[in-house]
Amino acid sequence: MFDADSLHEISTGPAPAALPAMQRARGIARVSFKHGTKTSLDDLYQSGCAKVRLPKVYDAPPVAVIINTAGGITGGDRLSYEASVAPGGHAIATTQTAERAYRRVAGHGQVNTKLSAGDGATLEWLPQEAILFNASALHRSMQVDLEGSARLIAVESVVIGRTAMEEAMETVEFQDRWRIRRDGRLIFADDARIKGTPAGILKGKAALTGGMAFATFVDCAEDAEDRIKLARTSLEAFGPGANTRAAASAWNGVLTARFAAPDGRSLRSALIQFLETYRSAALPRVWSC
Rank of each mutant, 00 (worst) to 15 (best):
M1Y: 09
L7C: 11
I10R: 13
L19I: 02
A21K: 05
Q23W: 07
R26N: 10
G36Q: 06
T37C: 03
L44V: 13
Y45H: 14
Y45E: 13
A50H: 02
V52L: 13
Y58L: 11
D59H: 12
P62H: 02
V65M: 09
I66S: 03
N68H: 04
T74P: 01
Y81G: 07
H90S: 12
A91L: 08
A93D: 01
T95N: 04
R100C: 01
V105T: 11
G107W: 07
L115Q: 10
L115N: 04
A117W: 04
G120S: 05
A121T: 01
E124S: 15
N134V: 03
S136H: 08
H139A: 08
R140Y: 01
M142I: 14
M142F: 03
E147A: 15
S149T: 15
R151Y: 00
L152C: 09
E156T: 02
E156Y: 07
S157I: 00
V159I: 15
I160Q: 09
R162Y: 05
A164S: 11
A164V: 13
M165I: 14
R179S: 11
D183R: 06
D183F: 02
R193S: 06
K195S: 14
P198C: 06
P198V: 11
G200H: 07
K203M: 14
L208P: 04
G210M: 07
A213I: 03
A215N: 05
A215I: 02
T216K: 02
V218C: 06
K229W: 09
L230C: 02
L235T: 06
E236V: 08
P240Q: 09
P240N: 05
P240V: 06
T244H: 03
R245N: 03
A247L: 11
A248Q: 03
G253P: 02
L255S: 04
R258S: 07
A261V: 01
A261W: 04
R265W: 12
R268V: 11
I272V: 15
Q273E: 13
F274S: 10
L275T: 01
R279I: 10
A281G: 04
P284I: 10
V286L: 13
V286R: 11
S288W: 12
